[in-house]
Design a protein around this nucleic acid. Structure first.
Length: 485
RNA sequence: GGCGCUAUCGUCUAGGGGACUAGGACGGGGCCCUCUCAAGGCCUAAACACGGGUUCGAAUCCCGUUAGCGCUACCA
């Protein structure tokens, strides 16, 4: 037997039959965190042995999702389909060492026996009839070209392991079926392929969804029969939808890509996913990836399935939006602003300082990147569109609104310095001189500047928009109010 | 049906025999701040599935029950 390498080796092994699911992403995350924390390797293996369901497109989606999340794998991607020759050789080895046997039962026959067993309310188990075939008969039938599969013979006894999250799990071998390891077309069955590849890749920690718990005893038996040391197993709980059922399309966005396009930050997604099924202990919630690596420990892994709560995800994203350094936020937001047609990348770069100030102001009240883009409109567009509700509410008395805006124009255009302090002084002074509350001035002004009822503080808006644009908007609003009066 | 896994507020969780009148977070309700909306601060409602043990003492350990989920293919 080989001895394990000093550092842990883990892998994420999705089958390319759809998009990268949030459940898969979380499995990948925990594998990655473990590898990073303990200085090991995180590998990626695409389980594409099911030719009928595997697609190139889906493989690409997995790469994209992982890249977006920043879950970088350490060595070349392994495509399981490229290893069928070894899988086959391992099956033959098992046959020759007496751990497996040829079975000539056809799928149709098996199906019928299975149905009969179900009808009698019995658990179906392969009855091993082909295991007692004499060697010469087996040889003769094979020579005659009769098709057969290779079945693994489950030994007596029981199979147990110490799971990293569940501790001891035991399966009596009598409950295990002599499962097929090589199909009649000589392609490998999942359990064999996985074990063969994990041995070949020298995987020492197998961390996967707990829907694989019942595969584990079979795989352990395969490791032993193949003469290889066992990895440590860790079975993570599933993720469910709000109704407690396994997460599916029915629950809305379940693909990692969906959240990317919804304007989420990968760091927030990772943080949220990490908290589904893991806790650093105590009250810690908002963490950067580096902090997660620091804090990660298998001790904190949860056994219970977690429910995917989009509201908390959005809150988490809002937290990250506010905490992330501006230079990190900028490249995430820029493509969205460009895509919305508000500005070009070059124009944003040419006034980067201003742009970052804007982002800094908008991000506080945004939960997604899309929120930021929505709020950013008035600062980029030449034309202003007045939200009918804003007009109805804040310009209700049109004559009064016009008078206030004209006064604001007078007060502001005389300013020698255009900054937060002078703006506040001028505007509060205006309200005082007219004997009205500050809000009575600020609100109509906000509509004039942004067309909206919601924006950052009015002095910030004025400062950010600049003197020319601000005064232009105010005069435009005055004209608008005069026209329709 | 068989086998397996799981079980603390609506949700994510802290808790690993006494520190528990069970803590935090999301969401809900209220208040404060305030030029709007957020953010932030404060307060509040809300949980140990049930039944037996073990123990001086159980959310914590054991056993049942119940419920949920998973697996039960020549799918992965």
């Amino acid at each position: 037997m080989n001895s394990f390498p000093e550092t842990p080796r883990l892998r994420f092994a999705p089958s390319p039959t759809g998009y990268l699911h949030v459940g898969g992403a979380r499995t990948a995350l925990f594998n990655w965190l473990y590898a990073r924390k303990y200085g090991g390797q995180f590998l990626l293996r695409i389980e594409d042995t099911d030719k009928a369901r595997s697609t190139q497109e889906s493989t690409r989606a997995i790469f994209e999702g992982l890249n977006w999340l920043g879950l970088q794998w350490d060595e070349d991607v392994v495509h399981q389909g490229a290893n069928v020759a070894r899988h086959r050789a391992d099956a033959i080895r098992l046959l020759e060492s007496g751990h497996a046997y040829r079975c000539f039962c056809t799928p149709a026959e098996l199906d019928q026996r299975r149905q009969e067993a179900t009808a009698r309310k019995e658990a179906f188990k392969y009855d091993r009839r082909c295991d007692s075939l004499p060697d010469d008969e087996v040889a003769r039938r094979v020579a005659a070209g009769e098709t057969s599969v290779i079945r693994f013979r489950i030994p007596e006894g029981e199979t147990e392991w110490t799971d990293m999250v569940h501790e001891r799990i035991v399966f009596p071998n009598k409950d295990l079926d002599d499962f097929v390891i090589l199909r009649s077309d000589e392609t490998p069955i999942y359990n064999l392929a996985v074990v063969s590849d994990d041995i070949d890749m020298r995987i020492t920690v197998v961390m996967r969804g707990d829907d694989h718990i019942s595969n584990t005893p079979k795989q352990i038996l395969l490791y032993r029969a193949l003469g290889s040391p066992l990895p440590t197993f860790a079975h993570l709980p599933m993720i469910h939808g709000m109704d407690g059922k396994k997460l599916s399309k029915r629950h809305g966005a379940t693909a990692v890509g969906d959240y990317q396009h919804l304007g989420l930050l990968p760091g927030a997604m990772l943080n949220f996913l990490a908290l589904l099924g893991w806790s650093p202990g105590g009250d810690r919630e908002v963490m950067t990836v580096h902090e997660m690596i620091e804090l990660f420990s298998p001790e904190g892994l949860q056994r219970k399935a977690a429910i995917f709560d989009v509201q908390k995800l959005e809150w988490m994203n809002g937290q990250h939006l506010s905490l992330v350094p501006l230079e990190e936020l900028e490249p995430r937001v820029t493509p969205a602003i460009v895509a919305a047609g508000l500005a070009t990348k070059a124009s944003l770069e040419s006034r980067r300082i201003w742009y970052r100030e804007l982002l800094d102001l908008l991000r506080v009240r945004a939960r997604t990147i899309d929120d930021i883009v929505r709020q950013a409109g008035p600062y980029f567009q030449d034309e202003i569109t007045y939200d009918p509700e804003a007009v109805a509410k804040q310009w209700k008395d049109r004559a009064e609104a016009r008078a206030i805006l004209e006064a604001a124009d007078a007060a502001l255009s005389g300013l020698s310095d255009w900054n937060l302090g002078t703006l506040e002084e001028a505007l509060r002074g205006l309200a005082a001189s007219r004997g009205i509350s500050a809000g009575k001035v600020f609100q109509p002004l906000r509509v004039a500047l942004t067309g909206l009822t919601v924006s950052p503080g009015i002095f910030e808006v004025l400062a950010l928009m600049g003197r020319d644009q601000s005064l232009k908007r105010i005069r435009q609003a005055v004209a608008e109010l005069a026209r329709t009066n």
